Simulated scan of single mutants.
Amino acid sequence: MSLMSPARTSEDLRAHNRARLLRAVHDHGASLTRAQLTEQLGMARGTASVLVAELAEAKLVTENPTEQLGRGRPSQVPGPHPAGPIALTVALREDGWELAAAEVGGATTSLGDFEHDGVPQAIFTDIATELERCRDRYGSRLIGVGISVAGPVRQGRLVHVSEPTWQLLDVNRWLRPGDLPVHLANDATLAALAEARRGRLRGTDVALHLHVDFGVGGCLVHDGRPITGAHGIAGEFGHMRLTGGDEPCSCGATGCWGQQVGVMPLLRGYGVGGGYRDGRSRARQLLESAATGDARAREVLERNARALGSGIGGLVNAHDPRIVTLSGMGTALLTNAADSLRESYLAALMRYHRTQPPELVAADLGPRGPLLGAAELVYDAFLTPEGIEGFSRVTAAT
């Protein structure tokens, strides 16, 4: 709703301000005092007090006193209510999936880590079973499900996951979500969203996030929001010809950047097998071998890092970000082959960018990024006057 709407009633304004206040509590990790929230939102002290009381009555927040350092009453910090909203989040990887519950403010509780056999119907049926158990556990507290997937997502359907090869999967028919909203998005996009909201990219106007794992994905972030393209599938950087390769890729293209960067190129270059069950552990062993003097492992690692740096340079030339964050195997390459990575990065930059190249840094949230980003998707949909009012009606009836 627009603040300028002439049809706005006093109750509309009140609902709008409740949503603004709860949004601020969530965005700042439930760390701001009531006085700080009042100042940040430009509200009168009395108005904020009334709104906090209404949110507390609806079981959306509860207040906890800060540690008292001097005389006077301790400050009150609005935070998640023990009977408040819960977002379920699923991080679906090539070799397994994790389920977690996220509360207002972003804190998450892991509910289990599960293996899968790569068969999509079986995977999503298992996820549906766990979601049903969560319905029994949390009841009306559930506000939605956010699912991170290692592949492009369009209109709630998996467009393409290279390995395992999934095409145009409509997951809702397996999840059976009922009236619970399900938000499905790419893992690298969600990692970028999490970094923008709760990590290294918070407060940055234009940034590039890259997630290197079995493949390479990423996202351009503008003012805290991922740029996802016309169909929601932007950021498939691993399927661009950034380094002049000519190998065929399972996506259907040739010369994809992801054929030279990530877990699988590392293992292929070292001459060892490894699938999605043991690929990460074998890659970690290769990193350890390189660190302890294995020349062959070192060369494979350096080659991977040079390809990563060269591709990043091309993306910086295209997007002009202020900073580039790396997660997954990208962090390992930045740590263990920094010189090769940075040398090839700088060589790929336009002269203009070389004078002040965007910094390459490790992401703050690491492997938790996609899971935390999935929670943000759910709360973005919930933290509206309509979403809050719906939760208030339910809590009033229970």
Rank of each mutant, 00 (worst) to 15 (best):
M264S: 13
G139A: 15
V119Q: 06
H231Y: 08
L326A: 04
Q259E: 12
L208D: 05
G275A: 03
L210H: 06
P358K: 09
R296W: 10
S289Q: 09
P321N: 01
A191W: 12
R154F: 13
R137C: 14
G96H: 00
T335R: 14
R71Q: 05
G244I: 11
L3M: 01
T204L: 15
A188K: 02
Q259L: 11
A188I: 03
D294E: 12
N17I: 07
H353A: 14
V145L: 05
N17G: 12
P370C: 08
G105R: 03
W174Y: 15
T109G: 07
S49Y: 02
E63L: 06
A194M: 15
G72Q: 00
G314A: 09
H16L: 11
F237V: 14
W166V: 14
A101G: 06
L55A: 02
G79D: 04
L13I: 09
M43P: 03
A35L: 13
L220D: 08
L142G: 13
R200F: 07
A332K: 00
S49R: 05
D126N: 06
I143M: 11
A101I: 05
A192D: 15
V50T: 09
A128V: 08
L371S: 12
V153I: 13
G373D: 13
S250R: 14
R34V: 04
A58T: 01
A35C: 07
A374H: 05
S327N: 15
A332L: 08
H222L: 11
P80T: 00
P367M: 04
L32Y: 12
P120M: 09
F114N: 03
V221Q: 01
L131W: 11
P74V: 10
D117S: 09
V221D: 02
D320Y: 00
R176L: 13
E115V: 03
N17C: 13
M240T: 11
